[in-house]
Structures are given as structure tokens and as C-alpha cells.
Design a binder for these strands. Structure first.
Lengths: 226, 226
DNA sequence: TCGAACTGACTCTCTGGTAAGTTACCACCG
DNA sequence: CGGTGGTAACTTACCAGAGAGTCAGTTCGA
């Protein structure tokens, strides 16, 4: 826990006093970003429930009260991480969809990979499973995931309806499952850091292609196994 | 939190003393099951991280030290819940697969629905997202999920390989995604308590059918949206 | 009377959050 | 140009609550 205390001085400043009180000359806006970076790492590493504010402060190279002065509370800090990550991701996915044939599974995934490239931990913040049910942070995270979800399944209703699916609940279930698939794919990516965003896109295209073929034969009564 | 204190006397015993110390005549084996039932509810409700041993003891109608005497620690208690739930589910899925055409998606789901009927919270225990990474309970839960996972994707390799997928990583990703799909479907079921196991089975059959058709058209270049 | 069942009342640690004080930068004054 | 007050940046040291885990003892059935 004490190994990261020297790594936070990326901005143009060097500690002048050994360890006393007093300002270090870092403006608030800069320091806030440093804290957010440290918080994303801390929260992603242990989950909201288990991450400690003291550890995050130490990782950021400052003391706990400063974190509280800038972000108010643990939930406030998480909310700030969430907003930064959520706006970034949602924005990229929207942009990507505007410039391509809307809604195809592979292209949605590609946009997510691209947006998360270089800041994959953002995804962990958006999907942290340890958020206490019913809390403000939980609601906020759900909100961002929901926006992504709506973007991703736009158009699903008509397509499925056209193929004979009329039950509302069936549509809800399908959407829920698709969300889980996206989550699973991104989590797999997180577990394979060597994989580039482009490689993931290609991989998903391959798998989708193959699964389509399997399902087609299944639907035709060939008894494919899945 | 105090509303469930009277609901635990399902076994043949009634409190004889008002609240003193002393035995209540409940043999250890029975009490252990009562504690496990209360623990499953408590852990499922708030997650391992946020559930408190005192609350679980209260829900079981006994005091905290007895829980510790029987299960040793919070992790020990969770482990006991996990083993009971895991063995039950895995056993049922194995049985179901032995008596049917092995490995088809819909039938695996049907077996899970049947096994979980009447004890759906078992699933929450097996998939609790708040388990601390690296802990013994986390490993144990992963173990059970892994056994289910292996059962479910048995045969996937040959099928996908036959359709042109040769990359090992592609297979790993596919398996990971399938696991997520199962999880998503069961979680949806948990969120819709009125749905019977049989209804879920039918619903999944419908959706799988429709999605197969959609994917088939997608693969054929019709540009289906998903 | 012996052991199993059972409890009230602790301890101890961890952590979210706070109070009060310290230092450095800076604008302004003389 | 040196002083000087104000404010933003920062810290040490603490509090309070919650919850895991324990101890010493009490009651009851056999």
C-alpha cells in the first residue's frame, strides 16, 4: 500500500516541504483529476464496498480530508468517477452510431471497445457489482448502463416482432440478455489485457458469424449444440 | 429488521422461556438448517459484503454466538450456504442432462429453472457479486459456477469448430458469453417472481427460436438489427 | 450431574467523516 | 521593493458507529 506514494507527481510540481501541512501548489482542478484517477483504480480494484477512502487518498499522494473537501463523501467521489466514465462512453457510442449503420451488434461492440481503449477501468466503475442496492451511486450507474442499453437495443423490437415475437416480456428478456452479452464480452476483454480494441472487434465478428450459422442450423432442426 | 423474528419456528418447537439463556430443545442439525435458510435470505437480500451476522441470527430467531459456534465465521456460514445450493443445482442439471439430448441451450436452461423452482435464492448465493475477490468464498462460488459452465458448454467446441471457428480464445470468449446469458436469464426470472419454471422454459424456447431466425438473416446479409 | 443448546455483554478493528490548525501563494499597500 | 493580510491548499489527530468475533456463564433434557 505504500509503494505508490511517489508516483502521483505527474503535474508540474515537486514536493517542497518534506511532509508538513501547507499547500503544494497544485490547483484544485488538477488535483481533482488526480484524485479521480486514483479513485477509479481503487474502486475498480476492490469494488465500492471494499475500497477505502484512506487508501485512495494515499494512492493520490494526499490526505483523506482533502478528498472529502473536494468530493464530500465516498458516494460523492464515486459519483464523480461515474459521471466522467459514463459521459465519455455514452458519448463515444452515440458518435459511432451516428456514423454507421445503426444498431448492428458487432458495430455497437466495436464502438465500446474503441471508447474504452486506454481507460478500460471505466467499465468496471460503470458495472461495479458491490454498489449497495438502492443507493444513489447504484441508481446513477444503472442510469448510464441503461442509456447504453437503450442505444444498443434500438431497433430490436421491430426486428423481433417481424420474426414472430409479440410478447412484451419476451422483448424485455431479450434486451436483458443482450446487455449481459455486452458485459460479458467487455469483462473478458478486461481479463485479457494484451488484446487490442481492434483485435476484439475482429474476434467478435468471427464469433457472431459462427454463432449465427449454428443457430441457423439449430432453427432448421439440425440439433446443433449450444 | 424486527418483523421476521416470529417467522422462523417452522420446525416442531415453540419458545418455552421468554428470552433467557438455556437450550430450547432444538437439535443441532435442525438449527443448522434454520440458520442456513435465514442466511440464504440475508445474504441474497444485501449481498455478502453488506449482510450482517447479527441480522441473520435475528432472522433465524437465535443469538449471534450460536451461529459462530456452528459455522465458525461469516465466510464459514456463506460456504455452508454455497455448498448446499451448489450441490443441489449441479446435481439437478447433471440428472437432467443424463436423461435428454445432451447440451442443447433450451434444455440446459429448463433444467436450471426446474432445479431452482422453490429455492430461487440459491442462485443469488452462487452468483453474489459482492464476494471479496480472492477470498475462499469467492473461489468456492466460482467453482460451482464453473462446474455448471462446463456442463452447459459441453460439446460447444466441436460444433463451433465445425462451423469454422478454430481460435482457442474465440472458444473461451463464446463460453464466457454463454455463461453470462444463462446468468442474465435466471436473474430476469428472479425479477419476475410470478413466472413459473415451465413458463420460463417456454419463453426461452420462443426467444431462442426467434433469435436464430434473426441471426440467420443477419448472416445472410439482410442487415438485421440487434 | 453432565453435556448440549443457548445468551448478554463485551472487545477490537476498520473506516467514514470531522475539527482545528499549518503552510504557501498572491494581490495589494506603503 | 518589502511587508501583510486573505485565501486556497493541505495535514495531523481525532471521533463515532458498525460489525466481526469472543467469553463467561445460564438453562434444560437425559
Amino acid at each position: 500500500m505504500a509503494h505508490a506514494s511517489m508516483a502521483e507527481c505527474q503535474t508540474a510540481q515537486m514536493a517542497k516541504t518534506g511532509g508538513g501541512a501547507g499547500t503544494k501548489g497544485v490547483p484544485r482542478a488538477d488535483r481533482e483529476q488526480q484524485i479521480l484517477d486514483a479513485a477509479v483504480q481503487g474502486f475498480a480494484e476492490r469494488g465500492f464496498a471494499y475500497a477505502s477512502m484512506a487508501a485512495i487518498a494515499q494512492r493520490a499522494g494526499i490526505s483523506k480530508p482533502l478528498v472529502y473537501e473536494y468530493f464530500g463523501s465516498k458516494e460523492g467521489l464515486y459519483l464523480a468517477c461515474l459521471n466522467r466514465a459514463g459521459e465519455h462512453l455514452v458519448g463515444h457510442v452515440v458518435d459511432a452510431q451516428n456514423g454507421t449503420t445503426l444498431g448492428r451488434a458487432g458495430e455497437t461492440l466495436a464502438a465500446i471497445f474503441a471508447a474504452l481503449d486506454g481507460r478500460r477501468l471505466d467499465w468496471v466503475i460503470l458495472t461495479d457489482p458491490t454498489l449497495p442496492a438502492g443507493s444513489a451511486v447504484h441508481e446513477a450507474a444503472s442510469g448510464y448502463r441503461d442509456r447504453l442499453h437503450r442505444l444498443a437495443v434500438e431497433g430490436t423490437r421491430e426486428v423481433l416482432a417481424g420474426r414472430g415475437l409479440t410478447d412484451d416480456q419476451d422483448h424485455a428478456l431479450s434486451a436483458h440478455v443482450w446487455e449481459a452479452v455486452v458485459t460479458a464480452v467487455v469483462n473478458w476483454w478486461l481479463a485479457h489485457p494484451a488484446e487490442t480494441a481492434a483485435a476484439m472487434t475482429q474476434r467478435c465478428d468471427r464469433v457472431i458469424e459462427a454463432l449465427s450459422a449454428v443457430n441457423a442450423s439449430t432453427a432448421a432442426g439440425a440439433g446443433g449444440q449450444l
